[in-house]
Protein backbone atom coordinates (compact mmCIF):
# COMPACT_ATOMS: atom_id res chain seq x y z
CA UNK A 1 0.00 0.00 0.00
CA UNK A 2 1.38 3.40 -0.92
CA UNK A 3 1.97 6.06 1.73
CA UNK A 4 -0.65 8.34 0.20
CA UNK A 5 -3.22 5.59 0.14
CA UNK A 6 -2.46 4.75 3.77
CA UNK A 7 -2.81 8.42 4.71
CA UNK A 8 -6.17 8.72 2.94
CA UNK A 9 -7.43 5.57 4.57
CA UNK A 10 -6.45 6.95 7.96
CA UNK A 11 -8.17 10.29 7.27
CA UNK A 12 -11.30 8.48 6.10
CA UNK A 13 -11.29 6.50 9.34
CA UNK A 14 -11.08 9.68 11.42
CA UNK A 15 -13.95 11.28 9.47
CA UNK A 16 -16.09 8.15 9.86
CA UNK A 17 -15.45 8.04 13.61
CA UNK A 18 -16.38 11.72 13.87
CA UNK A 19 -19.63 11.12 11.98
CA UNK A 20 -20.58 8.23 14.28
CA UNK A 21 -19.86 10.43 17.30
CA UNK A 22 -22.00 13.27 15.94
CA UNK A 23 -24.84 10.85 15.19
CA UNK A 24 -24.76 9.47 18.74
CA UNK A 25 -24.68 13.03 20.07
CA UNK A 26 -27.75 13.99 17.98
CA UNK A 27 -29.61 10.91 19.25
CA UNK A 28 -28.74 11.64 22.87
CA UNK A 29 -29.73 15.31 22.51
CA UNK A 30 -33.07 14.37 20.96
CA UNK A 31 -33.75 11.72 23.62
CA UNK A 32 -32.85 13.94 26.60
CA UNK A 33 -34.04 17.30 25.19
CA UNK A 34 -32.38 19.22 28.06
CA UNK A 35 -30.83 22.70 27.64
CA UNK A 36 -27.34 21.50 28.73
CA UNK A 37 -27.20 19.10 25.78
CA UNK A 38 -28.02 21.01 22.61
CA UNK A 39 -27.90 19.04 19.37
CA UNK A 40 -24.85 19.11 17.14
CA UNK A 41 -26.59 21.49 14.73
CA UNK A 42 -26.90 24.20 17.40
CA UNK A 43 -23.32 23.65 18.61
CA UNK A 44 -21.95 23.79 15.07
CA UNK A 45 -23.91 26.96 14.39
CA UNK A 46 -22.38 28.53 17.51
CA UNK A 47 -18.96 27.21 16.41
CA UNK A 48 -19.40 28.91 13.05
CA UNK A 49 -20.58 32.17 14.62
CA UNK A 50 -17.67 32.31 17.10
CA UNK A 51 -15.18 31.28 14.44
CA UNK A 52 -16.29 33.96 11.98
CA UNK A 53 -16.30 36.81 14.51
CA UNK A 54 -12.76 35.88 15.57
CA UNK A 55 -13.56 34.84 19.13
CA UNK A 56 -12.55 31.21 18.61
CA UNK A 57 -9.39 32.21 16.80
CA UNK A 58 -8.32 34.43 19.69
CA UNK A 59 -8.88 31.78 22.34
CA UNK A 60 -7.57 28.86 20.30
CA UNK A 61 -4.47 30.90 19.46
CA UNK A 62 -3.85 31.60 23.15
CA UNK A 63 -4.26 27.91 24.03
CA UNK A 64 -2.11 26.68 21.16
CA UNK A 65 0.64 29.13 22.02
CA UNK A 66 0.68 27.93 25.65
CA UNK A 67 0.93 24.26 24.62
CA UNK A 68 3.62 24.96 22.05
CA UNK A 69 5.67 27.04 24.48
CA UNK A 70 5.33 24.33 27.10
CA UNK A 71 6.55 21.74 24.58
CA UNK A 72 9.35 23.95 23.38
CA UNK A 73 10.79 24.56 26.81
CA UNK A 74 10.33 21.03 28.15
CA UNK A 75 10.83 18.59 25.27
CA UNK A 76 14.46 19.25 24.38
CA UNK A 77 15.82 19.40 27.95
CA UNK A 78 13.76 16.36 29.00
CA UNK A 79 14.86 14.33 25.96
CA UNK A 80 18.50 15.32 26.39
CA UNK A 81 18.59 14.55 30.10
CA UNK A 82 16.66 11.29 29.63
CA UNK A 83 18.86 10.01 26.80
CA UNK A 84 22.01 10.91 28.73
CA UNK A 85 20.71 9.16 31.84
CA UNK A 86 19.85 6.09 29.80
CA UNK A 87 23.44 5.81 28.56
CA UNK A 88 25.34 6.94 31.66
CA UNK A 89 24.92 4.88 34.82
CA UNK A 90 26.48 7.68 36.86
CA UNK A 91 23.98 10.29 35.69
CA UNK A 92 21.16 7.77 35.99
CA UNK A 93 21.99 7.27 39.65
CA UNK A 94 20.96 10.91 40.17
CA UNK A 95 18.13 11.17 37.63
CA UNK A 96 16.24 7.95 38.31
CA UNK A 97 15.48 8.63 41.99
CA UNK A 98 14.24 12.09 41.01
CA UNK A 99 12.02 10.54 38.37
CA UNK A 100 10.57 8.11 40.89
CA UNK A 101 9.54 11.01 43.08
CA UNK A 102 8.44 13.40 40.32
CA UNK A 103 6.68 11.18 37.83
CA UNK A 104 3.81 9.78 39.91
CA UNK A 105 2.99 13.17 41.49
CA UNK A 106 -0.40 14.59 40.51
CA UNK A 107 1.22 17.71 39.09
CA UNK A 108 -2.08 19.46 38.37
CA UNK A 109 -2.64 19.59 42.12
CA UNK A 110 0.38 21.86 42.39
CA UNK A 111 -1.41 24.57 40.40
CA UNK A 112 -1.95 26.80 43.48
CA UNK A 113 1.75 26.63 44.40
CA UNK A 114 2.79 27.25 40.80
CA UNK A 115 0.46 30.27 40.67
CA UNK A 116 2.08 31.61 43.85
CA UNK A 117 5.60 31.12 42.54
CA UNK A 118 5.18 32.09 38.88
CA UNK A 119 2.41 34.62 39.30
CA UNK A 120 -0.95 34.77 37.56
CA UNK A 121 0.44 35.34 34.06
CA UNK A 122 1.39 33.03 31.22
CA UNK A 123 4.48 31.62 32.94
CA UNK A 124 2.56 29.58 35.48
CA UNK A 125 0.31 27.97 32.84
CA UNK A 126 3.23 27.14 30.58
CA UNK A 127 5.19 25.79 33.53
CA UNK A 128 2.39 23.47 34.65
CA UNK A 129 1.86 22.00 31.18
CA UNK A 130 5.62 21.84 30.60
CA UNK A 131 6.17 20.03 33.89
CA UNK A 132 3.79 17.25 32.90
CA UNK A 133 5.32 16.83 29.46
CA UNK A 134 8.81 16.97 30.96
CA UNK A 135 8.50 13.99 33.26
CA UNK A 136 6.80 11.80 30.64
CA UNK A 137 9.40 12.54 27.98
CA UNK A 138 12.23 12.09 30.48
CA UNK A 139 11.08 8.62 31.48
CA UNK A 140 10.58 7.37 27.95
CA UNK A 141 13.83 8.93 26.70
CA UNK A 142 15.76 7.19 29.47
CA UNK A 143 14.14 3.80 28.85
CA UNK A 144 14.55 4.14 25.11
CA UNK A 145 18.24 5.03 25.35
CA UNK A 146 18.80 1.98 27.54
CA UNK A 147 17.32 -0.27 24.87
CA UNK A 148 19.69 0.80 22.08
CA UNK A 149 21.26 -2.49 20.95
CA UNK A 150 24.79 -2.99 22.24
CA UNK A 151 25.91 -4.18 18.80
CA UNK A 152 24.92 -0.91 17.14
CA UNK A 153 26.93 1.06 19.67
CA UNK A 154 29.92 -1.27 19.32
CA UNK A 155 29.83 -1.26 15.54
CA UNK A 156 29.84 2.53 15.31
CA UNK A 157 32.43 2.74 18.09
CA UNK A 158 34.65 0.41 16.05
CA UNK A 159 34.58 3.05 13.29
CA UNK A 160 36.22 5.48 15.69
CA UNK A 161 33.16 7.47 16.80
CA UNK A 162 33.48 9.71 19.85
CA UNK A 163 30.89 9.72 22.63
CA UNK A 164 29.21 12.76 21.15
CA UNK A 165 29.14 11.19 17.68
CA UNK A 166 27.64 8.03 19.18
CA UNK A 167 24.91 10.13 20.77
CA UNK A 168 24.11 11.99 17.56
CA UNK A 169 24.47 9.08 15.13
CA UNK A 170 23.07 6.22 17.19
CA UNK A 171 21.29 7.08 20.43
CA UNK A 172 19.15 9.99 19.20
CA UNK A 173 17.89 8.38 15.97
CA UNK A 174 17.32 5.04 17.72
CA UNK A 175 15.17 6.75 20.36
CA UNK A 176 13.34 9.18 18.10
CA UNK A 177 10.29 6.96 17.37
CA UNK A 178 9.87 6.31 21.10
CA UNK A 179 10.24 10.02 21.87
CA UNK A 180 7.55 10.92 19.37
CA UNK A 181 5.26 8.24 20.77
CA UNK A 182 5.66 9.60 24.28
CA UNK A 183 5.09 13.10 22.93
CA UNK A 184 1.82 11.88 21.43
CA UNK A 185 0.77 10.39 24.77
CA UNK A 186 1.75 13.43 26.80
CA UNK A 187 -0.03 15.80 24.41
CA UNK A 188 -3.35 14.32 25.50
CA UNK A 189 -2.49 15.00 29.12
CA UNK A 190 -1.14 18.44 28.23
CA UNK A 191 -4.42 19.54 26.62
CA UNK A 192 -6.40 18.26 29.61
CA UNK A 193 -4.18 20.11 32.07
CA UNK A 194 -4.27 23.20 29.87
CA UNK A 195 -8.03 23.30 30.32
CA UNK A 196 -7.58 23.29 34.08
CA UNK A 197 -4.87 25.94 33.99
CA UNK A 198 -7.01 28.19 31.83
CA UNK A 199 -9.90 28.19 34.26
CA UNK A 200 -7.83 30.41 36.58
CA UNK A 201 -6.67 33.98 36.31
CA UNK A 202 -7.02 34.48 32.60
CA UNK A 203 -9.53 35.81 30.08
CA UNK A 204 -8.09 33.99 27.07
CA UNK A 205 -7.81 30.37 26.03
CA UNK A 206 -10.37 27.72 25.15
CA UNK A 207 -10.47 26.55 28.78
CA UNK A 208 -11.56 30.04 29.78
CA UNK A 209 -14.14 30.14 26.99
CA UNK A 210 -15.64 26.82 28.10
CA UNK A 211 -15.98 27.84 31.74
CA UNK A 212 -17.13 31.35 30.83
CA UNK A 213 -19.91 30.21 28.49
CA UNK A 214 -20.89 27.60 31.05
CA UNK A 215 -21.40 30.31 33.67
CA UNK A 216 -23.33 32.39 31.14
CA UNK A 217 -25.54 29.33 30.48
CA UNK A 218 -24.57 29.65 26.82
CA UNK A 219 -24.44 25.88 26.28
CA UNK A 220 -24.16 26.00 22.50
CA UNK A 221 -21.06 28.20 22.83
CA UNK A 222 -19.64 25.90 25.49
CA UNK A 223 -19.90 22.95 23.10
CA UNK A 224 -18.37 25.04 20.34
CA UNK A 225 -15.36 25.69 22.59
CA UNK A 226 -15.13 22.02 23.55
CA UNK A 227 -15.10 21.12 19.86
CA UNK A 228 -12.37 23.68 19.27
CA UNK A 229 -10.26 22.25 22.13
CA UNK A 230 -10.72 18.75 20.69
CA UNK A 231 -9.67 19.99 17.26
CA UNK A 232 -6.58 21.56 18.83
CA UNK A 233 -5.67 18.18 20.34
CA UNK A 234 -6.32 16.44 17.01
CA UNK A 235 -4.18 18.99 15.18
CA UNK A 236 -1.25 18.51 17.56
CA UNK A 237 -1.61 14.75 17.21
CA UNK A 238 -1.54 15.01 13.42
CA UNK A 239 1.48 17.31 13.63
CA UNK A 240 3.43 14.69 15.59
CA UNK A 241 2.43 12.05 13.03
CA UNK A 242 3.70 14.30 10.25
CA UNK A 243 6.91 14.91 12.16
CA UNK A 244 7.44 11.17 12.53
CA UNK A 245 6.94 10.60 8.82
CA UNK A 246 9.43 13.35 8.09
CA UNK A 247 12.05 12.48 10.69
CA UNK A 248 11.84 8.68 10.68
CA UNK A 249 11.25 7.61 7.08
CA UNK A 250 13.05 4.37 7.89
CA UNK A 251 10.60 3.48 10.62
CA UNK A 252 7.98 1.25 9.11
CA UNK A 253 4.66 1.63 10.80
CA UNK A 254 1.27 0.52 9.60
CA UNK A 255 -1.77 2.44 10.73
Amino acid sequence: MSQLEAGLRKAAGVVLAALVLVALWALAAAALSKPFLPGPALALAAFWRLASNGTLGLHAGASASRVLWALAVSFVPAATLGLAAGRSPRLDAVVSPLVYILHPLPKAAFLPIILLVFGLGEASKIFLVGLIVFSQILVSARDSARRVPRQLIDSVRSLGASRLELAVLVVVPASLPDLLTSLRVSLGTAVAVLFLAETFATVTGLGYLIVDSWSRVAYAEMYAAIIALSLLGLGLFAAVDAAERLLCPWHSYRT
Partner: peptide, 30 residues
Protein backbone atom coordinates in the same frame (compact mmCIF):
# COMPACT_ATOMS: atom_id res chain seq x y z
CA UNK B 1 40.05 1.67 18.20
CA UNK B 2 42.42 1.70 15.23
CA UNK B 3 41.50 3.40 11.95
CA UNK B 4 42.79 0.57 9.76
CA UNK B 5 40.89 -2.17 11.60
CA UNK B 6 37.38 -2.88 10.36
CA UNK B 7 34.92 -5.04 12.30
CA UNK B 8 31.85 -6.84 10.98
CA UNK B 9 29.48 -7.99 13.68
CA UNK B 10 27.12 -10.93 13.71
CA UNK B 11 24.01 -8.83 13.09
CA UNK B 12 25.98 -6.55 10.78
CA UNK B 13 25.57 -3.47 13.02
CA UNK B 14 23.92 -1.45 10.26
CA UNK B 15 22.10 1.70 11.34
CA UNK B 16 18.41 1.19 10.44
CA UNK B 17 17.90 4.94 9.84
CA UNK B 18 20.64 5.21 7.27
CA UNK B 19 20.31 4.06 3.70
CA UNK B 20 22.68 1.55 2.12
CA UNK B 21 24.84 4.41 0.93
CA UNK B 22 24.57 6.23 4.27
CA UNK B 23 25.75 3.13 6.10
CA UNK B 24 28.58 2.43 3.67
CA UNK B 25 29.97 5.94 3.91
CA UNK B 26 29.71 6.14 7.70
CA UNK B 27 33.44 5.63 8.40
CA UNK B 28 34.24 8.37 5.89
CA UNK B 29 31.71 10.71 7.49
CA UNK B 30 33.29 10.03 10.88
Amino acid sequence: VRAKTAVIFQDYGLLPWRTVEGNAELPLAL
